[in-house]
Design a protein around this nucleic acid. Structure first.
Lengths: 226, 226
DNA sequence: ACCTGAACACCGTTCAAGT
DNA sequence: ACCTGAACACCGTTCAAGT
């Protein structure tokens, strides 16, 4: 059987990156290898190196795709509302690509698309009237949350099946405060999924805690000791 | 040359874990492979599997070693001071092992040592008088910061050599707000390292922003909508 | 019963041989 | 000049053969 006469649409950097995002979405980030990506594209592995220098550059490229999905800032609101809304949009993008946070954190240098996003977020604070000094420390304090990271510890833990009753009782007696929190969360009314935590509520709770603290410092005319 | 008659001190789980920590400290986390660790211990790779079931269990073990270095909570202070001090101790432990944050984040389930630490931190809030409800949301809001994570974006970036002047000018015009912050930080007096940011100051700034916000909610008798 | 060498199924990337 | 198969130097882990 010879392959059909019509050739596959030729490779391009954009086609490589889009296929990489799709592969990570469908099969998980651990499946995103140069070899499997090439196979997905019906191409020999070395053909990819014409469009990305190496795997690091491929990962930078997929980060740019994800960051490109964040909606632009809205005009005609105060800085707090604009920052809040855009961070929630960034969170949506990260949630559409469950592997994205992990990949972004593995990068050592920001790509131009990430720098543009950060520049724009800094601009929202500055145009809102915050001083350079305060904005600087605020950006450090927001940290990766500015890109929509939830910064939860062990997010995968509650998704696993609950332990058998005997072990659960043992855990509860060894870690009573953890158990108290876990049972309270399980019975909470505002929990969307039965027995779990409302991730969206927790994210907004933490975000608003920070934004309100920042607003208070700004109104107080806070500046660092210099 | 035959090896000396006296045998190496026999392997044990503890010796394996200590060697793994030392190897990661000295050669970087990417050098911590089962094969290189075995070589370091003068042992065939498969010998390690007598003491750890697989590489995941090895990584859980080294996390426990690091968490074991965090100092116990101090008594006889208010909850805010006790939480603050212990988080700063956790940060010290993470800084002594530059790879630790990355490894902890790669784990999907907390080890018993991590659970014990979290249980103790929850206890500080509860014994300080915070409600179960507030403590629950506070633990989510603190997130990985409770273990001393700084949550900075691209911490490695400023450590790299500065770009040549021509490119720096181009970057400054493309990302003016980033440039404004960078130059302000470079000239700031409270910067310990010339031209960089004071990581310890930024960490404490963010930590205090959260702790003060939490204290305010607590005094106000905050509770979630239910 | 314990220990371990060889083997398996992967990686990212280099390089030389083919067209 | 371009393309690509084979090869290299690694992984974690299985398994069967040795003691």
């Amino acid at each position: 059987m010879t392959p059909p006469a019509e050739r596959r649409t030729p490779l391009s950097r954009e086609r490589v990156l889009r296929a990489a995002v799709a592969l990570a979405d469908d099969a998980g980030i651990e499946s995103l290898s140069m070899r499997k990506l090439a196979q997905e594209l019906g191409v020999v592995p070395m053909a990819l190196y014409k469009h990305v220098a190496n795997k690091d550059e491929l990962l930078d490229g997929v980060v740019d795709v994800v960051v490109g999905e964040i909606e632009p800032p809205v005009a005609d609101t105060d800085w707090k509302a604009a920052v809040r809304r855009r961070i929630l949009s960034a969170r949506s993008a990260l949630q559409r690509h469950s592997w994205a946070a992990q990949v972004i954190e593995s990068r050592s240098t920001p790509t131009p698309a990430v720098l543009a996003y950060l520049n724009s977020m800094i601009g929202l604070f500055r145009e809102g009237g915050l001083s350079v000094d305060l904005t600087h420390h605020v950006m450090h304090a927001m940290g990766s949350r500015i890109l929509g990271f939830s910064q939860e510890l062990f997010t995968a833990a509650p998704a696993a099946e609950p332990p058998p009753a005997a072990m659960a009782a043992q855990l509860a007696s060894a870690f009573p405060y953890v158990a108290e929190l876990a049972t309270a969360a399980a019975h909470s009314e505002d929990s969307v999924v039965g027995g779990g935590c409302d991730d969206q509520f927790e994210f907004e709770f933490a975000l608003d805690l920070l934004l309100e603290g920042i607003e208070r410092l700004h109104r107080r005319g806070w500046m660092s000791a210099q």
